[in-house]
């Protein structure tokens, strides 16, 4: 048990204590993060108690590294917890899916026109889906198709980024560019966002 109660510390006290590398404050931060991770991730089968302890320890180091980027508009502990959750979930995502062998059925769903007849039986919604398939086939680059398929297949962004040897930010940008192209493709065909929403909700 540390000699500092986390709930007693102000944002300024956290910063001062951590900058001074006060052992009690460091212990209080680790305990606070550990409790938060147990509360938010402890129910997951893939996250054991030892994992959460390790994540909390690493998160303290991450917080120390990022201390200068803390902005006082947020509570310090919420900011630290955000870093801890990002670190922990990134590790769990890496562990859950080490490669990007994609489910071929996802790619087929998005590009295979043999499904078009089936979808067309569902009226306007099916027509929109067929158009979306056309957009994926015609409007996207190969890399954009790859990222969209991986996203729908549940491949974690960090795993895909490592496979493609780019940053996670670059993967996000590729996905965003692809979605914008598809949105424009649908819009040009008369399917604006409101129409798409109505068709999706009309099931």
């Amino acid at each position: 048990m540390s000699g500092v109660e986390a709930s007693d510390l102000s944002n300024e006290a956290w910063l001062a204590g951590l900058r001074a590398r006060d052992a009690d404050v460091l212990d209080a931060l680790r305990e606070r993060i550990c409790l938060g991770l147990q509360s938010s991730l402890g129910h997951r089968a893939e996250a054991g108690e030892a994992d959460l302890d390790d994540f909390a320890q690493e998160a303290v180091l991450r917080v120390m590294d990022k201390l200068d980027s803390y902005r006082a508009e947020a509570r310090f502990t919420t900011w630290a917890m955000a870093l801890a959750v990002r670190l922990s979930l990134t590790k769990l995502r890496r562990r859950s899916r080490k490669d990007v062998s994609l489910d071929a059925s996802v790619a087929a769903s998005l590009t295979d026109n043999s499904g078009a007849t089936e979808a067309a039986t569902h009226g306007a919604r099916g027509e929109m889906f067929n158009l979306l398939r056309q957009g994926v086939a015609q409007a996207l680059t190969e890399r954009q198709r790859q990222v969209i398929v991986a996203e729908l297949d549940g491949v974690p962004q960090v795993v895909l980024a490592e496979q493609l040897q780019v940053s996670p930010g670059a993967v996000y940008k590729t996905s965003h560019d692809a979605r914008r192209k598809l949105k424009a493709f649908l819009s040009d065909a008369g399917y604006d966002s409101d129409t798409v929403g109505e068709l999706l909700d009309a099931r």
Binding site: S69, V106, S109, G115, L152, G169, Y172, K183, L200
Partner: peptide
Amino acid sequence: TADERHLDQLARLVKETADEEIDCDQFLE
């Protein structure tokens, strides 16, 4: 069907897409 589920998911993502979006690093900030 699985096909429709994937297309439904993609259509929802496309519908929510904005011209300007923050990325995951900006989210964390």
